[in-house]
Amino acid sequence: MLTGKLVRLRAVEPTDFESIWRWSHDPEVMRWMSSGYPESFVQAQERLAAAPRNSYENCRFIIESLHDQRAVGFVRLRDAKPEVGNAELDIQLGEKDVWGRGYATEAMRLMCRYGFNEMRLHRITLDFAAENTAAHRVYEKVGFVEEGRVRECFHRDGKWHDMILMGLLEGELRD
């Protein structure tokens, strides 16, 4: 487990499924996330149960609050390639009562530190909808640098949105 002052990152357990399901069906939580096609509870449960275990290519963790030991979100490094030392980071805080309290920032720092120190990554990237200003602030706080913009590639609320691309190199992580 990876532990900070606010959160612990731990492996996903079957008991986390109901929280993950609830988050993925909350329009406010999913506002700027790619949600895919609708699934029944059983279909989603089967998909999660069949997901491969953590590996270099796809490393997932639950973000757990140290305050009350409950799952509050999800973070992962995916599409990692050892031959080039790159991975993409995804994060979701599903419990709205922890938004704006530093949980996402600490979870990202822990995950990036894990990626650089344990996985020997050189570069971590992410992308997000340009209108997601809260996420942008968190990413900059951690040390991510804007590297580009993909115009009108994300559709939400009847309009197209730009995606911002950011990257963090080994040695750029801010505490």
Rank of each mutant, 00 (worst) to 15 (best):
H25Q: 09
E64Y: 04
D68P: 02
Q43G: 08
I91T: 06
L77A: 06
S35M: 12
R10H: 14
W32P: 05
N54A: 10
E131A: 15
W21N: 08
E147Y: 03
L173N: 05
R113M: 11
L173C: 09
I91G: 01
A134E: 04
L165Y: 04
E106L: 01
Y37C: 14
S19K: 11
R76M: 13
D79I: 06
R156H: 14
I124W: 00
Y56T: 05
E46P: 05
R22I: 11
L2T: 01
G102W: 02
V84Q: 12
E170K: 11
A87K: 12
H136R: 15
G94H: 03
P27Y: 02
R156E: 08
E170A: 11
L169Q: 07
L89Q: 05
L66N: 01
C112I: 04
G171I: 03
V72T: 01
D90Y: 12
F116T: 00
Y139P: 03
Y114V: 06
T3R: 14
R113K: 15
D90L: 15
H161Y: 01
G167Y: 07
M166S: 05
M30D: 04
R156Y: 08
P82W: 12
V75R: 05
M1G: 13
I62C: 10
E172N: 10
A80P: 05
H155D: 09
E64P: 07
G167T: 00
F144E: 08
T133W: 14
G158S: 10
G73I: 06
E147Q: 13
D79K: 15
R60A: 02
E83S: 15
